[in-house]
Design a protein around this nucleic acid. Structure first.
Length: 260
DNA sequence: ATGGTAGAGTGTCTA
């Protein structure tokens, strides 16, 4: 089974790229973030004609998560137990969607950005991650994948220039500790071992031709429970998808799983 | 410190 995660930065504006991506890589399950669409705005027809079911959460113009699957889409859950709220509850719920697809419990996660270190959104981000960790502890014994845009660059090597992030979110010790806590609990970054070398980035800002100059961040991750991590046979970052006119600012991350 | 680009959708907000 081949799963993928992609911060698509608007599903409606990029539906053609999404459909081509699914076909090009023969994807079974795709988790999306920043869909920026209400349920009634989802472009379903092309996806369904390709054989996929779609589940989504999101009601505003900034967040939104979805799971697209052709191997089953069961036990769909909007939000995780204990998930903190921010503003409109519907906005908060648009950041986590769980579903069981082909025997794997998959969570499409859009971790709060945090905005600025002195912004209340930063504390919301830390609280959100802590609550997710509490909930995810109960899923360690199953085939679980926590995938999506974590809005954290855990290591200096995940950042094109650390000096530019001296006062920024995404790299602070508290955010990195919040990420590391999942690893300490037993969740495994299943992609890094399969992407050796310096080209680890998954996100390049639209500003200042950051992609063309390869000035990126690694903030999109697939964390697997021990039993899921043991099934991983391959993983890659689809940098091609970030190129050209009409690209998202994130690249998709792809993971292959052996049969259970 | 600010600005640069993109997407939501019309006046800004978010990233």
């Amino acid at each position: 089974m081949r799963i993928a995660t992609w911060n698509v930065n608007s599903l409606r504006s990029r539906i053609d790229r999404v459909e081509r991506f699914l076909e090009r890589h023969d994807i079974d399950v795709l988790a999306l973030q920043e869909t920026k669409a209400r349920e009634d705005q989802l472009p379903l027809m092309g996806l369904q004609s390709l054989g996929y079911d779609v589940a989504a959460a999101g009601t505003n113009q900034w967040n939104g998560v979805a799971i697209i699957s052709r191997v089953g889409l069961d036990e769909v859950t909007v939000g995780f137990p204990g998930q903190p709220q921010w503003g409109d509850p519907a906005e908060s719920e648009a950041r986590a969607l769980g579903a069981t697809c082909g025997g794997v419990r998959l969570w499409s996660l859009y971790v709060p950005n945090g905005r600025k270190v002195d912004d209340p959104h930063y504390l919301y981000k830390l609280d959100w991650l802590g609550r997710l960790r509490e909930a995810a502890g109960d899923w360690l014994g199953k085939d679980t994948a926590l995938v999506g845009d974590w809005n954290i660059a855990p290591l200096d090597e995940d950042v094109f220039d650390m000096s530019q992030f001296a006062k920024s979110t995404h790299v602070t010790p508290r955010e990195r500790a919040a990420f590391q806590a999942f690893v300490d609990d037993g969740y495994v970054d299943v992609v890094r071992p399969h992407t050796p070398g310096p080209d680890v980035y998954t996100y390049w800002d639209y500003y200042r031709q950051r992609f063309e100059r390869n000035r990126g961040l690694r903030i999109d991750f697939v964390l697997g429970s021990p039993s899921l991590a043991a099934r991983v046979t391959a993983a890659s970052i689809d940098r091609e998808e970030r190129a050209g006119v009409g690209a998202s600012d994130h690249a998709p991350v792809i993971v292959d799983l052996a049969d259970a």
